[in-house]
Amino acid sequence: MSQLITGEKTPQQMKDMRECGRMLATIYDELRQKVTAGMSELDVNEFVAGRIKDFGAEATYLTDEVKFPGVICVSTNEQLVHSFPTDYVFEKGDVVSFDLVIGYRGMKTDSAFTMVVDEEPRGAKKHLLHATEQSLYAGIDAISGDGTRVGDISAAIEAVLKKAKLGIIRELVGHGVGLEMHMSPEIPNHGQRGTGPVLHAGDTIAIEPMASLGGEKIVTEDDGWTISMKDGSLGAHFEHTVLITETGAEILTKL
């Protein structure tokens, strides 16, 4: 990861980043309503690519630096993250995670969410999705503004996932974001309060807890991209891009 440029975003850059976040949140709002059984992962990719183009934004995953085979990550069931869109057709009850980075006027935002196809989450699926998303907001709520330690965020996330008795994905982390897709510092999903790098007003980070109904071990599939749960259990992934303010935090990827 490159070094996070603290406090060096211009007012225009922050304006563009907020607009970029609004675009991403709008795409997700539409996608939640659109995804249904009988639709393929490639259909999702086509829809999202069209909306990115409509907004005059950039599909970051397609840039020369990334060269991902799609504009959005679509990870289904035991696939946790970074799976590229295929011709797989969604079935009712599938647990699907979407992860998207877009750029606008040189600034980037990153967000993810998990949903169940064509049914209200129930039982273990509901528990997995609810607790993982709850841990994201616990991490955001732990941000007290300028001077917050990364460990404060990490500990808050871990506490929720531990209480829920979910597998905490420790090998993958959140990160700084803005001028680049991945910047310092790393934002782990486990840790101790009062430790880690200090965050300052103006810093922008992607907080992204990942959890499973089983163990914590992950594997990279033969395609070189897809990261799945080693034990085949269901996983979930929620993420927001957040601005550190003087006294708290502002979520940039939420309408």
Rank of each mutant, 00 (worst) to 15 (best):
L62Q: 15
P85D: 04
E41W: 00
V44S: 04
D43N: 04
L80F: 04
E46I: 01
D43Q: 02
F68E: 05
F90Q: 07
A59V: 09
V66E: 11
T63N: 14
F47Y: 05
S75D: 14
N77Q: 15
S75M: 12
A57D: 03
K53D: 00
D87I: 14
G70D: 08
F55L: 00
L80S: 03
K67N: 15
V71D: 10
T76G: 07
T63P: 09
V66M: 11
Y88R: 12
L42H: 02
E91Q: 14
S83N: 08
G56P: 02
L80W: 04
C73Y: 13
S75A: 14
A57Y: 02
Y61E: 02
T86L: 06
E46L: 01
I52H: 01
L62S: 14
N77K: 15
F68D: 08
V74E: 13
E78G: 11
L42V: 02
T63Y: 13
A59F: 09
T63G: 10
D64K: 11
G70S: 13
C73R: 15
E58T: 03
P85T: 09
F55Q: 00
D43M: 02
F90R: 11
T86S: 08
Y88M: 14
C73I: 12
H82T: 04
E91F: 12
E46A: 03
K53R: 05
F90C: 08
G70K: 07
P85H: 06
H82R: 10
V89T: 13
K67R: 14
I72D: 05
V89L: 10
R51Q: 05
N77E: 12
L42E: 05
K67L: 14
A49T: 10
K67Q: 14
F68Y: 08
Y88K: 13
D43A: 04
K53G: 01
F90S: 08
E46S: 03
S75P: 12
Q79S: 06
E91L: 14
T60G: 03
P85L: 04
E91W: 13
A57I: 01
F90L: 11
V48H: 00
D64Y: 10
E58I: 04
Y88W: 10
K53N: 01
F55V: 00
G50L: 00
V74Y: 11
R51H: 06
T60F: 05
P69Q: 09
N45C: 10
F47M: 07
D54A: 01
F84Y: 15
Y61V: 03
K53M: 01
D87E: 11
F68W: 06
F55S: 00
G70A: 08
E65L: 11
N77H: 13
F84E: 10
D54P: 03
C73E: 13
L80Y: 04
Q79W: 07
T76Y: 08
L62G: 14
F68P: 06
